[in-house]
Simulated scan of single mutants.
Amino acid sequence: MNIGSFKSVNGQLLGSVATATIDLARLGLRPVESNNERAPAFEIMVLNVAKRWVQIGALWEMTSNSSGESFFQGKLDDPSLPEPLQIMLFGDVEEGYRVVWNRPAPRRENLDGSRTGRRSRASNADDFAGNATADGRVSDDQTADDYVPAF
Rank of each mutant, 00 (worst) to 15 (best):
R38I: 08
A39R: 09
P40L: 10
A41S: 15
A41Q: 10
A41M: 10
F42T: 01
F42S: 07
F42W: 13
E43M: 13
I44Q: 00
I44G: 00
M45Q: 13
V46F: 04
L47C: 08
L47F: 04
L47I: 03
N48W: 03
N48C: 02
V49G: 10
V49C: 03
V49S: 14
A50V: 07
A50F: 07
A50H: 07
A50L: 13
K51E: 12
R52G: 02
R52L: 09
W53Y: 09
V54L: 12
I56W: 01
I56S: 01
I56P: 01
G57F: 05
A58L: 06
L59E: 01
L59G: 04
W60C: 02
W60A: 04
E61W: 06
M62E: 15
M62D: 13
M62K: 15
M62Y: 12
T63Q: 15
N65R: 13
S66R: 12
S66Y: 13
S67Q: 02
S67T: 06
S67M: 06
S67R: 00
S67I: 04
G68C: 07
E69Y: 07
E69S: 08
S70I: 08
S70D: 11
F71C: 09
F71D: 02
F71K: 01
F71R: 00
F72L: 15
F72V: 04
